[in-house]
Amino acid sequence: MKLLTAFAVTALSLSFGSAAFAQSNPPGLTHAEVMAQLQQAQAEGLVPSHDNDYPPSQATIARNREIYAIQHRTDGAFEVNTAGMPGDHSAPASN
């Protein structure tokens, strides 16, 4: 009788143990998805960010967007003005 009880307990514990490992985890991101998310974050100005400026301030985000636009020639990058000067560059510079 003890042998039958031990066998039943063992069989039940094995079935419950295997059910615990049968849980499915959602699949991870692919390399392409991670790279796309990184590029989107860079375009939005969220990276790079200094450790002292986390989460990045609005000024840092604006600066990072300008740098990204210049590097990737997007969003009117030729008209980006980082010196605070007027956008019209047709006038000659005076000395």
Rank of each mutant, 00 (worst) to 15 (best):
H89L: 13
L4D: 02
A93W: 13
Q23T: 13
H72Q: 12
A69W: 04
I67E: 02
F21Q: 07
H31K: 11
G87Q: 09
L4T: 01
S15Y: 14
A32H: 11
Y54R: 15
A62M: 10
A41K: 01
V80D: 05
Q23I: 14
A77V: 01
V47M: 02
N25L: 15
Q42M: 13
A77D: 01
V47E: 00
M85W: 05
A11E: 03
A62K: 11
M85Y: 09
P86C: 06
A91L: 15
I70Y: 00
M35Y: 05
P86A: 10
Q37F: 09
A32I: 07
I70T: 00
D75E: 12
E33L: 02
P48H: 03
N81Q: 13
P26S: 07
M1Y: 10
T5V: 05
S15E: 14
T30S: 14
N64S: 03
Y54D: 09
A19Y: 11
I70N: 00
I67H: 01
A43Y: 03
E33W: 04
E79F: 07
G28R: 15
L46K: 07
A22L: 09
F21T: 11
P27Y: 04
Q71I: 04
V80L: 10
L38M: 13
E66Q: 11
G45N: 00
A8I: 08
F78I: 06
K2L: 11
A20L: 15
P92H: 03
P92M: 03
T5D: 00
I70R: 02
Q71A: 12
Y54A: 10
T30E: 01
Q40M: 12
G84L: 00
I67S: 02
N52R: 08
L3A: 14
S18Q: 15
E79G: 05
Q37M: 15
R63M: 09
A43C: 11
A91G: 08
